[in-house]
Design a protein around this nucleic acid. Structure first.
Length: 492
RNA sequence: CGGGGUGUAGCGUAGCCCGGUAUCGCGCCUCGUUUGGGACGAGGAGGUCGUCAGUUCGAAUCUGGCCACCCCGACCA
């Protein structure tokens, strides 16, 4: 059993924190609200990046990079967007330090080096990007413009949690420009589907696709589409958003194009992003009291081989067999690590790889060599089996698939169990407190009702599901007529 | 930004009320025995007690300021 992981049942958020730290994913840093992503955590993020980047390119996007700093005048151009982020912006006001005349060993901000115009550290890049697009777009021939950037952004959060909410985080932001409203909406939906496919097929986390209410909408967007996932503790997590920005940014930055008839019009825009927050979703979907569980498709190492031996000669003998097995597995496209450290004992390695979430562990000892077998342990179910070594490549290939599928199935079942319908406000509150999870309920469609429910219960409308069933009902709060049920939950 | 808490070796801690240069565990280093689920024994290294100032012959301990981090609330991906 793990040494230092608080059990989920005892304290879910301590458990989460323990997993992040003990599995070597990330650490708190010396900077308030900012984390250090450690090699193991970063390796998983890199797998996510690689997959998403490939998917973006397959849908016609290209990468570029825009500045970290945004002049205040640009930032404030799209008013709603600026207003939405104003409270959490880091601002650069000076460009030089100097030695403190009162204390030679200290530095102070040089008051003479005040910037003419303050620079905002980007909380998102619409402003600088649309200011740039203005120069790139003149004609319908320049459209669509399909650009993505991988970057860090800063949002000065009051309260932070590793991966889920940090002052600085890593993400990708896609920013596209289109000739028509329809095309922009299609792009918004396409990217939402890309996210859903990634999160479900690679992260093995089922998501609900939907649209945000005006209250929850991205500042500056006409519509915000989202994917919502449900964590083990019954709280929802927004895993990705895709925004239809209408002509808001085109108008704010005066980005017009000439159509085939020479008529000038503002372009239509989208933006979409996912962040290192996905790491939090991954952890809170699959991991257990023994440590991290990583789905095979995102595992930096899919299979670890641990030798069991006595003495130097023993290791040499086992290693010969392992090298053959390793090559065999690699030829099937499986990533394999041979953990031949002679500084740790097998039991220690078993525990360590369990903690770090390696999907499959193979044990080979001299006994196996005599019998022509290997011991295979799967991380998701914590079960072990002894198989013939010549079956290894096929067996492990299937096993990795089955682990990936099993994790997804389990997550779907959990979500189903934690999804309910409420027909009255009393029932709604009871379900929320006793069960949590997604709660479908009729809502009268007004921001006032949404706000009141939020203040009274801490539950928010996570989304209005896409292709939602239209039906007559009455709002659980106001009793007014409603045409559809929306999804409520307490959220991260 | 409000409420609560913590800061002592790499990590977790005792000591603080009642001032006299610091306890224990894990980890680390060396040697030996071990190796199929977190090994054992012996020896060893490692500290401006968050920081600045004050009180005192003497401060981890008392007083004041500051800083950082964690948890809970309001805000957000």
């Amino acid at each position: 059993m793990s040494k230092s992981i608080t059990p989920q049942e005892q304290d879910y958020s301590k458990w989460y924190n323990d997993i992040v730290v003990e599995a070597d994913l990330a650490d708190h840093s010396a900077v308030r609200g900012c984390m250090v992503i450690k090699p193991h955590g970063y390796a998983i993020w890199e797998k996510m990046q690689q997959t998403l980047d490939r998917m973006f390119k397959e849908t016609g996007h290209v990468n570029a990079y825009f500045p970290l700093f945004i002049p205040k005048s640009l930032f404030e151009a799209e008013e709603k967007n600026a207003e939405g982020f104003a409270k959490e912006c880091a601002v650069v006001t000076h460009y030089r330090l100097k030695t403190d005349p009162l204390n030679k060993s200290k530095l102070i901000v040089d008051p003479e080096a005040k910037l003419e115009e303050e620079l905002i550290v980007r909380p998102t890049s619409e402003a600088i990007i649309w200011n740039t697009y203005k120069g790139w777009i003149q004609s319908y021939r320049d459209l669509p413009l399909l650009i993505n950037q991988w970057a860090n952004v800063v949002r000065w959060e009051m309260r932070t949690r590793l991966f889920l909410r940090t002052a600085e985080f890593l993400w990708q932001e896609g920013h596209t420009a289109h000739a028509t409203r329809e095309e922009a909406i299609a792009e918004t939906e396409q990217m939402l589907n890309v996210y859903a496919e990634f999160v479900e097929n690679y992260m093995a986390v089922p998501v609900l696709k939907g649209v945000k209410t005006p209250n929850e909408r991205f500042a500056g967007a006409d519509d915000t589409y989202c994917i919502e996932a449900l964590m083990q503790d019954g709280k929802a997590l927004q895993a990705g958003t895709s925004h239809f920005l209408g002509q808001n940014f085109a108008k704010a930055f005066d980005v017009k194009f000439a159509d085939k008839n020479g008529k000038l019009d503002y372009v239509w825009a989208t933006s979409w992003g996912v962040s290192t927050r996905l790491m939090g979703a991954l952890i809170m979907s699959h991991s257990d009291n023994h440590g991290l569980v990583i789905p095979p498709k995102l595992a930096p190492t899919q299979v670890v081989i641990v030798p069991i031996y006595k003495g130097e000669e023993g290791l040499k003998k086992v290693s010969e067999h392992v090298e053959k097995l390793k090559a065999d597995l690699q030829s099937k496209g499986i990533s394999v690590k041979y953990d031949n450290r002679d500084t740790q004992r097998p039991g220690f390695k078993f525990a360590e790889h369990e903690l770090k979430g390696t999907p499959v562990r193979i044990g080979i000892g001299e006994r196996d060599i005599d019998n022509g077998t290997i011991e295979v342990a799967r991380r998701d179910l914590l079960t072990k089996e002894v198989i013939k070594v010549e079956d290894a490549a096929n067996y492990i290939t299937d096993l990795l698939h089955s682990i990936q599928t099993n994790l997804f199935e389990k997550a779907i079942q959990r979500r189903e169990k934690m999804t309910s319908h409420a027909t009255s406000y009393e029932e709604f509150k009871r379900l929320l407190d006793e069960k949590g999870g997604f709660i479908y309920a009729h809502w009268d469609g007004t921001p006032e009702t949404e706000e009141k429910i939020k203040n009274e219960t801490k539950a928010t409308i996570r989304c209005i599901p896409l292709n939602n069933k239209q039906e007559n009902g009455t709002c659980i709060y106001s009793g007014k007529p409603s045409t559809q049920q929306v999804v409520f939950a307490r959220a991260y």
